[in-house]
Design a protein around this nucleic acid. Structure first.
Lengths: 295, 295
DNA sequence: CTTCGTGTTGTAAGTTTGCTACAAACGGAG
DNA sequence: CTCCGTTTGTAGCAAACTTACAACACGAAG
């Protein structure tokens, strides 16, 4: 009950509310932005109930009085209305649509931020720090994430690949060793070819990190399971938001690994950044340093 | 002055504040999370000034009284502490580090959400709707974004490519026509080879959409400039956050374009999603439908 | 060095807001 | 139909926020 943002909690607890409290919930859900600016008396007036009912409502959904409720609601609203409560409609104007798509992304990241397991992260970083070879695999949107990782992790000074097609992925896994870390990315965690590849890597003794959206075969098969739970996007129009959170998780792992390596690695990064800036505008076909970093 | 979140505004306005008000600002910046839970009297006590000074401070930074200040601060804090005000340190624990990296990402997205030009988006969608060929180009991190777009836009039923290396990009631009839309992605907007490629496309009469981090040569050269301004990440440790916002902008454009196409295209999407789900766990090597969507 | 004036800060009173104890109304069970 | 538990509203109170005003500090000019 006390998990998630207020808006989520209101939704979850709808059934447990009394009749008048439910009327309050309806008004709040209908226009959260507006309610933030209301005073207790105004909200009572708008809903058509007495002031204490509002207070009781606030307590019922896990807030400590109206004050606390208002602040928590403001925070919810700042993140945006989550995808679970707002649907993209054909008649939405540009501004509305921008809000909705960004809101989905931001609330999704917020959700992951709250639910990510720090311990699993620690173990992942430890494994990566000990590794002498990194392989990232994924298909479709998750393949994009794997490629992103391939741009980041070479900075650690460890050979790093992100084979694109299923055969290449299988091949890489089949040549892995006990000092290899294979990071498998799959939101569903049920993609057959990914699971096959992971099994091979495990047979070879490699350490498998599974980045997935929830409990799944991939999570079971992995030595370390990183659950990156994005909110349901059942809607057809809703774009793929799972990769965003996955990307940020990759960012986090990369940053932690870099910090773990300490000063020498950081020096490399600084030098790389400087050289890249130079090359970018200067001589584009020079070879040598390529890839990586914002362009 | 009245732009951005409270925390940004406090930072910007530091110089214009009176001495005691500045003491307030220091306390707020030092522990925004804590201040959110404080009452006016408590904050006055903590800072060591009188209550009216707090109120004046709130007004000075563009809030309407202490009430409003507290709500706005709560919203700022909900999004996280922006990268401009918090630095990743070597001694950060895992939990802190996760917060920081996610905060950077979320505040960056929030910033873009506020500053994105809806009009430019509209024109982009219009151009894409009219196009019979789409080309996405980018290098490094922006190349990842281009590839992501390549996974999304085929749903519109328009031939779509995202050449990876500079030669292929140049070639694609050189064969473009007036009905081609070239989307060039570059955070700096100064990468030489991208600019060359864009010039060729323009010579050929193609419509050029430039996605870039601010005023830049690319923005100048583009028919439509989409400014996706990510907050400065001067820090070495700070991971690349520009691509996140770029990805969400691509999402937005894709969603808008799909809506614009209307029901037939949406039907295709639904069917595609269904078939993909089937294929994923079933027969991985079947060919036909491939790529795209969360895996 | 003094005096005056502007600008800054604190004191105190006033007003609004949110909280809580209690009473009335409602609804179901016996 | 009556009783009892639950739900809702009324009224008074305490706390919080705001504002008017007075005192103070600081700098400039004489």
């Amino acid at each position: 009950m006390n998990a998630g943002t207020v808006l989520e909690r209101i939704n979850n607890g709808l059934e447990t509310l009394r009749r008048s409290e439910r009327k309050v919930a309806d008004v709040v859900l209908a226009d959260p932005h507006g309610v933030v600016r209301m005073t207790l008396a105004e909200l009572a007036e708008a809903v058509g109930v007495s002031q204490p009912t509002i207070v009781r409502f606030a307590n019922a959904i896990g807030c400590d009085g109206f004050h606390d409720f208002r602040i928590q609601l403001a925070q919810s609203v700042a993140l945006g209305i989550p995808a679970t409560q707002s649907v993209i409609e054909a008649q939405d104007g540009t501004a509305t649509l921008v809000s909705k798509v960004f809101d989905f992304s931001i609330t999704s990241l917020d959700h992951v931020r709250r639910h990510l397991d720090p311990d699993a992260l620690d173990r992942t970083v430890e494994a990566i720090t000990a590794a002498d070879r990194l392989i990232f695999i994924g298909l479709g949107a998750s393949g994009i994430v794997a490629m992103d990782a391939e741009q980041k992790f070479p900075l650690l000074g460890v050979p790093c690949s992100a084979p694109i097609d299923t055969h290449q992925q299988f091949l890489a896994a089949a040549t892995s060793t006990p000092t290899t870390v294979l990071v498998a990315i799959s939101n569903t965690g049920r993609t057959a070819s990914i699971l096959d590849t992971v099994r091979v890597a495990r047979d070879r003794g490699a350490t498998v990190v599974g980045i997935t959206g929830g409990p799944s075969p991939l999570a079971e098969l992995s030595d370390i399971a990183l659950i990156v739970e994005s909110l349901d996007n059942t809607d057809v129009y809703t774009p793929t938001i799972s990769r965003l959170a996955q990307l940020v998780v990759i960012d986090t792992i990369a940053t932690m690994s870099l910090l773990r390596r300490g000063e020498p690695a950081l020096g490399d990064v600084r030098e790389m950044k400087a050289r890249l800036a130079q090359m970018r505008s200067g001589a584009p076909y020079q070879g040598g340093l390529d890839r990586r970093e914002e362009t």
